[in-house]
């Protein structure tokens, strides 16, 4: 099992947000997470990354128990995180942003890693000298995903990658991620509101309600408008 979460709880101050979440993700799986706003989707990813302390439960990344690990330790153990809003370094160039992603390589191996990642992101190749802040939102999102992959993660957590991004780049992100899914090793947990996006990429989808996972659905079930309306609160 790549990721094994058992009864995870977390809270903002005294307000509980996650009330015992349990799920597991196998190696190479792409799992989507859907839910109303405020049900704890982003909180779940933050708790998995260690930015919110767990108040209960257990998280394992393969054989490592990471329940209490610092965020940088989790990143080093192979947990990649592409946060909502991209969070690239606006003052650094695209190339330096990618170099920042290479936290686990020796400086000599950096170049090789970046070149391999850029093969998947041809659009970034001609933007290498530009500063991150000068890119469009879609380009920044591609950069954020590419930077995450430079760290050679075993499991990638992707938080709302299509938010505020033009459709042509959303298609590019879907194609890139589908290509990556076909290749060995990479596992992904995807939080999204965009149903087409999540259906195109996920093998199964977990529905989160009031801080717990209440149901698991298949991508094709997302075409069922009544189910979507009931559990996710989005009308298609």
């Amino acid at each position: 099992m790549m990721l094994d979460v058992q009864g995870l709880r977390t809270a903002y101050g005294r307000i509980p947000i996650l009330n015992g979440i349990s799920f597991a993700v196998g190696e190479g799986e792409f799992v989507g997470i859907l839910g109303h706003n405020g049900m704890g989707k982003t909180t779940l990813l933050k708790a998995l990354m260690g930015f919110l302390p767990a108040t209960g439960g257990r998280v394992r990344l393969e054989q490592d128990d990471i329940t209490a690990a610092e965020p940088y330790r989790r990143a080093r153990l192979g947990l990649g995180y592409v946060p909502q809003g991209r969070e690239i370094f606006p003052q650094l160039t695209v190339l330096d942003n990618l170099r920042m992603g290479c936290s686990k390589q020796q400086s000599g191996a950096e170049r090789e890693t970046i070149e391999a990642v850029l093969e998947e992101f041809p659009r970034l190749k001609r933007l290498l000298d530009r500063t991150g802040g000068a890119l469009s939102g879609g380009e920044q999102q591609l950069l954020a995903i590419a930077r995450c992959l430079c760290g050679k993660p075993r499991l990638v957590l992707l938080d709302e990658p299509t938010e505020g991004i033009q459709p042509s780049i959303i298609d590019e992100i879907v194609e890139t991620l589908q290509r990556l899914r076909g290749r060995s090793g990479l596992t992904m947990i995807l939080v999204e509101q965009n149903l087409d996006f999540i259906a195109a990429l996920s093998q199964r989808i977990l529905i989160i309600q009031k801080g717990t996972i209440t149901r698991e659905v298949q991508p094709d079930e997302l075409h069922d408008a009544s189910l979507v309306g009931e559990f996710i609160g989005i009308t298609t």
């Binding site: 990354m49 930015f51 610092e70 965020p71 940088y72 990143a75 080093r76 995180y81 946060p83 969070e87 690239i88 370094f89 606006p90 003052q91 650094l92 920042m100 992603g101 936290s103 686990k104 930077r147 995450c148 760290g151």
Partner: peptide, 12 residues
């Protein structure tokens, strides 16, 4: 520039 960003990339 951003401590948290650096941390999520694996730097302490």
């Amino acid at each position: 520039e951003n401590e948290r960003r650096a941390e999520l990339l694996g730097y302490d």
